[in-house]
């Protein structure tokens, strides 16, 4: 039940795009057709489910003040938390690289679907942002971190597919000259964000 609450909360209420604007660059650049944006959304979800729990373990057993005491009690006073950024980004880049190789070897069909997006994901702010939020929120176990990663990823997928569907239809409508393209996408995302804020009051 705890997991389910966290999942719903991270998909709808703390939506990566509408509440925190994470991953906006690729969100605006790739959302021209539903098909490609679904591919990117899946890739992001996939990477988040793997990286958030791994970074959770790194944070718990390496970075937090006193985290090193499992090696020897003498190290209990060491605080490595200033290394957070560099370690998290290195882990993310490494995992993306490994995932790319694994997917390429075992499921070539998935690779051809995600292929071009995978390397780009290492520098997608949604991935690093999700890990940093995970660190800030002090989850109590790996399961929660994984569910948070999954929920955030699905929320991101939902948002990018929705905007892509709207942009496909937008081609047939009359938008003022200066607003065409990026401008109108910004405003639509803002309106969608207002709609998503309706979820805020829900207590689960």
């Amino acid at each position: 039940m705890e997991f389910f609450r966290l999942f719903i909360k991270s998909v709808f209420i703390d939506n990566m795009i509408f509440a925190y604007f994470l991953g906006m660059c690729s969100y605006l650049a790739v959302s021209k057709t539903v098909k490609t944006s679904a591919g990117l959304g899946l890739a992001v979800t996939f990477v988040l489910v793997v990286t958030v729990p791994v970074n959770y373990l790194i944070n718990k057993y390496l970075l937090l003040p006193g985290a090193l005491s499992w090696i020897s009690p003498k190290l209990a006073s060491v605080d490595l938390s200033f290394l957070t950024y560099i370690l998290f980004i290195a882990i993310i880049a490494a995992i993306v690289q490994i995932l790319e190789m694994v997917i390429e070897t075992f499921t070539p069909s998935l690779y051809s679907a995600l292929g071009i997006f995978l390397p780009l994901i290492a520098v997608n702010c949604a991935i690093l942002g999700c890990s940093l939020f995970m660190q800030e929120r002090n989850f109590s176990n790996v399961g929660e971190a994984a569910v948070f990663g999954l929920g955030s990823g699905i929320g991101w997928l939902l948002a990018i597919v929705a905007i892509a569907a709207i942009r496909e239809k937008l081609r047939y409508s009359k938008v003022p000259k200066g607003l065409q393209g990026v401008g109108i996408s910004f405003i639509i995302t803002g309106l969608m964000g207002i709609a998503f804020m309706a979820f805020m009051g829900i207590k689960i």
Binding site: F18, A19, Y20, F21, P176, G178, L179, V182, G183, I184, S185, F186, I187, T189, G190, L191, M192, G193, I194, M197
Partner: peptide, 14 residues
């Protein structure tokens, strides 16, 4: 609120 930031940037672009 967050959504207004998007709309303000949209208007600047416009």
């Amino acid at each position: 609120l967050p959504p207004m930031a998007l709309i303000v940037v949209g208007v600047i672009i416009w």
